[in-house]
Design a protein around this nucleic acid. Structure first.
Lengths: 160, 160
DNA sequence: CGCAGAATGTTAAGATATTAATCACATTGA
DNA sequence: TCAATGTGATTAATATCTTAACATTCTGCG
């Protein structure tokens, strides 16, 4: 027999992945041409937009797990793009700020990046893009899933 | 002065990334509990749905670049999930097929995975999900971008 | 036939993702 | 004050991503 019922799964994760690939194809050449990775660019823009911030915040906003972030920040400092320092009052916290060169580079690349975005917008349609983004925004708000495969006795509503 | 104009960028890639994170949070625990990576699971389901296929097709459908795929397939074969063999007539082509254990595992996990999906659907709404997916589908069709940062004479507005 | 060029995978090297364990410092409470 | 606990970052180990360079095998054509 053919195989599983496979009821034409929706494969939401796959679609999100493919869509992101299609979009990144527009930005990648630009980033490559200036020697930045996607992650580095996300961090640079964050820092330029909102000023210095601690590592944990960057991790949250840029969707980078802290173990990855550690290395990325080290390389970015080595490349002269940022400064790393410890918070005076709580030395666990790592404060990250843009260097002069980092700021310059960011502001040089930003308009080009925006141009890429406008290209996408032009192809896809402005309203559709707005709609898509608002849907994505909602999706991001999904409540954390309840554990299904643990030995713990399934959370019940009583636990809330 | 504050910083760049930063006109509240839309950050489409970021949203796609975050949305995918929110969604994967539902599937990750399941996959971890059976010792599969996201990529391995994508491949298993592909093979179960559509039968044996060559590596290049897997790469396309599962959104995995061939250099990554090489290693993933080696590990999956070592884990007894799949078989790898060369096409008799064109020995460049690598034919990948599900092993018995691979098939069993896949069919054991599939319903649980579907359950995760239905959870998401329940939270997000069926129609909205349909809409989102159709938008993502369109986005995937974006034409390949035109090179902007090459030695080619920078596009000007006149080119639009 | 024979060889240039295309197609398909693989290696290599460096960067990031992922999970678990650990380190250093902070905070709390007895 | 000190032990217990918590928090933020790092280390470790393995898997995957990315780009470039190779290695093979095919294909088409002179």
């Amino acid at each position: 027999m053919p195989t599983s019922s496979a009821q034409h799964q929706h494969r939401l994760p796959q679609h999100l992945l493919r869509a992101r690939e299609a979009v990144m194809a527009y930005f990648r050449p630009l980033l490559n041409s200036v020697g930045l990775t996607e992650q580095q660019w996300r961090i640079l823009r964050l820092l330029d937009d909102r000023g210095e911030m601690e590592a944990g915040v960057i991790a949250d906003l840029a969707c980078i797990l802290s173990p990855s972030l550690t290395g990325i920040l080290v390389r970015m400092e080595k490349a002269g793009l940022i400064h790393r320092s410890r918070d005076k009052v709580d030395s666990r916290r790592l404060i990250v700020s843009l260097s002069l060169e980092g700021r310059q580079l960011t502001r040089e690349v930003a308009p080009l990046s925006n141009a890429c975005y406008r290209q996408i917008e032009a192809h896809f349609g402005e309203e559709k893009l707005e709609l898509l983004i608002s849907l994505l925004n909602e999706l991001e708000q999904l409540p954390a899933p309840v554990a299904v495969t643990e030995d713990k006795p399934q959370l019940t509503e009583a636990d809330l």
